[in-house]
C-alpha cells in the first residue's frame, strides 16, 4: 500500500536517512522507530507529503502522497500533540473534514461525529474545547478526526507519548480493534517499546549514525534474535555500548 524507494530525507542541510526502502502492506500495523533525532518525524512528514524528500520516492497505492483525484485526503494523520484546532470544540474538529469533503447534511455529520467520539471513548467531550482536555483525550480526539473520512490508511506520530500506562494501553487496544475489525492500515512512528511489541506487526528501525535502516521485521524477533548490538540495546532498553 505504501511504497518507499531509495528515500533520502533531511532538514536544514542535515541528512537523516539515505536511500531508505520499505513497503507497508495493506491491513498491517507498521512501526517506524529509532533513537531520538534519527529522522522518524521527518520520515513521517515526507510519507504524508508535508515535506519533500531530498531523493527517492514515496507512493501510496501507486500515487504520490496527498489527495485523491477529487482533492479529498486519502489518509488520516494524528500529530504528536494532537494538533486539534484550538478555537473549535472537539465535535467541530471531528466534523471539519466531513463538512469539507462530503455532501452529508448536518444531522448525518452529527451522527458520524458522535459515533467516532464514542469509538474513542470521548462521547461526553463533544462540546469541550481542546484546551479543556487532558493529553490523552486530545490524542484520542485527534484519532477520531483522522478517522472521520474513513481512510484506509492512518499515520500516527508518537500516539502514546506523554500518556499514562492505562491510557496508552487503551490506545493500543483501539489501534488493534480498528485494524482487526475495520482492516485499517496503520503506520506508527514511536519509540514506546511496550506499544511496539503490542501492536507492531512489522517495523523498520532508523539509525542516525549510519543514516540507514539497520533492522526490519517483526519487533519481537528483533528484540530476541537480532545480531546487531544497536538493535538489541534499543529493543531491550539498555544503554548504548561502544561498538568497534
Amino acid at each position: 500500500m505504501v511504497k518507499v524507494v531509495d528515500l533520502t530525507i533531511g532538514r536544514g542541510g542535515v541528512v537523516f536517512q539515505e536511500a531508505a526502502s520499505f513497503e507497508v502492506d495493506r491491513g498491517s500495523i507498521f512501526v517506524v522507530l529509532g533513537g531520538s533525532g534519527c529522522g522518524k518525524s521527518t520520515m513521517l512528514r515526507v510519507l504524508i507529503g508535508l515535506d519533500q524528500p531530498l531523493g527517492g520516492s514515496v507512493t501510496i497505492d501507486g500515487l504520490p502522497p496527498g489527495r485523491g483525484p477529487s482533492g479529498r485526503p486519502t489518509f488520516g494523520v494524528t500529530f504528536q500533540s494532537g494538533a486539534l484546532l484550538g478555537s473549535l470544540t472537539v465535535g467541530e474538529n471531528v466534523a471539519l473534514p466531513l463538512r469539507a469533503w462530503t455532501s452529508l447534511p448536518p444531522d448525518a455529520v452529527g451522527a458520524i461525529v458522535a459515533a467516532k467520539l464514542r469509538l474513542v471513548g470521548l462521547q461526553r467531550a463533544e462540546d469541550l474545547l481542546p484546551g479543556e482536555l487532558s493529553g490523552g483525550m486530545r490524542k484520542r480526539a485527534a484519532i477520531a478526526r483522522a478517522m472521520a473520512l474513513e481512510p484506509a490508511l492512518l499515520f500516527l506520530d508518537e500516539p502514546s507519548a506523554g500518556l499514562d500506562p492505562n491510557t496508552a494501553a487503551e490506545l493500543d487496544d483501539l489501534i488493534l480493534d480498528l485494524n482487526g475489525q475495520l482492516g485499517l492500515t496503520f503506520v506508527v512512528v514511536t519509540h514506546d517499546l511496550q506499544s511496539v511489541f503490542k501492536v507492531g506487526q512489522r517495523c523498520v528501525m532508523l539509525d542516525l549514525e549510519s543514516k540507514s535502516i539497520i533492522a526490519r521485521g517483526d519487533p519481537r524477533d528483533l528484540r530476541d534474535a537480532s545480531q546487531d548490538p544497536r538493535v538489541r540495546s534499543f529493543f531491550n532498553r539498555a544503554p548504548r555500548t561502544a561498538t568497534t
Binding site: A111, I112, A114, A115, K116, A148
Partner: peptide
C-alpha cells in the same frame, strides 16, 4: 460497510 455508514445506520 465502513464506519461512517455504520454510524449513520446506528444513529437511525
Amino acid at each position: 460497510v465502513d464506519g461512517g455508514v455504520m454510524a449513520l445506520l446506528a444513529c437511525l
